[in-house]
Design a protein around this nucleic acid. Sequence first.
DNA 1: CTCGGAGTTGAAGCGCACTTCAACTCAAGG
DNA 2: CCTTGAGTTGAAGTGCGCTTCAACTCCGAG
Lengths: 153, 153
Amino acid sequence: MHEALTIGQLSARSGVAPSALRYYERLGLIRSERTGGNQRRYARTELRRVAFIRISQQVGVSLEEIREALDSLPSSRTPTPDDWAALSRSWRDRLDEKIRLLGKLRDDLDGCIGCGCLSLQRCTLYNPDDSLAAEGPGARLMLPRPDPDPAPA
Amino acid sequence: MHEALTIGQLSARSGVAPSALRYYERLGLIRSERTGGNQRRYARTELRRVAFIRISQQVGVSLEEIREALDSLPSSRTPTPDDWAALSRSWRDRLDEKIRLLGKLRDDLDGCIGCGCLSLQRCTLYNPDDSLAAEGPGARLMLPRPDPDPAPA
DNA sequence: CTCGGAGTTGAAGCGCACTTCAACTCAAGG
DNA sequence: CCTTGAGTTGAAGTGCGCTTCAACTCCGAG
C-alpha cells in the first residue's frame, strides 16, 4: 500500500525538516511505526498532524499546548474532518484575541503618536493588564511585575 | 536636580527588571552615566527609551532592530515628541502587516474548518509565500524549504 | 564605625524550538 | 560485494531575551 511515508518523504511533503519531525515525535506530537531495520514509517494521517502543528505555531501556540490539543483527538479511530475542525476552532479564539490586542496596540500607538507621549505612567500602551506579551518564546515574565510587593499587612 | 535615576528607580518606574535594564545597556539600547562609585545613573529620557523598547517588543521587533531604530534618533539634542512619533510610525506598517497576516490566517482557518481539509498541498493555510513565520525567536528556518533543489540544468 | 540594602561584574543557566554533529546502520542499484 | 544515499541515535550547539549566582563595593541611617 501507499500508506507509509519515510521521514524524508514526510519532510518533503510537509516542508518540515527531518530533525524537526524527530523532535516533534520525541515530544509526542506525531507518531511513527518502525520497519524491521528500525526506520520510521509515517501513516499519511501524520501529514495532517504536521499541518496542524505548523498552523498552530502561526497562531502562537507552544508545542506543549499543541501536544495537549492533539492528545484530545480520538486515539481509537482516525480523526475525521470534524475532529480537526473542532481543534482548529479552539485556536480561533486565541487568534481573535491576538488580533484584537494588536489592533488595540495599533490604535494606542496612533494615539501616542498624536500626543507624542510614550510616557509610562498614563499611557494606555504600557498597561500590563492586557497581557499580549508572553507570546514569543524566551525566558518568561514579560511585563509581569506590576506588583512590587504591596506591603504584607 | 531630580534628573538622575538609579537602576532600581528606573526598574520600578518602567516595570522592567534591573537585570533586563543592564542587558539592554550592554546591547546599546539605553545609556547611563556613572557616579564616582561606579553606579549607574539614568537620565529621565531613558524612561522613554525603555517604554519604546517594550512597546516595540509587543509589535514583534527584535532587540537588535530596536537598537537600530534607536540609533537613528538624534544624538546631539534630546529627542522631541516628533522624533518618537516618527519611530513609532515606522512600526505601524509592521503592525498592520502582522494584523493583516493573522486576519488572513483566521479567514483561511475558517475556510479550512468549513471544508475540513487541513491538507498541505492545496490549502492556502500552508502557503510559505506569506512568511508570517520567522517571527518569534528560536533557531530559524521556519517554513523555508519550498525549493527542494529544482534540478541544476 | 557598623550595618544592611542597593549596586557592581562576569559567567553560567534557562526555556523554547530546533539544528548540527559524529558515529553508526539500513536499503537499493550496479 | 561495494557503494551511496537515507536513516538511526544521543549529545551538544544556537539564538534570543533574559535571570541567577557569587563575590564584591557603595552609600546612607543609626
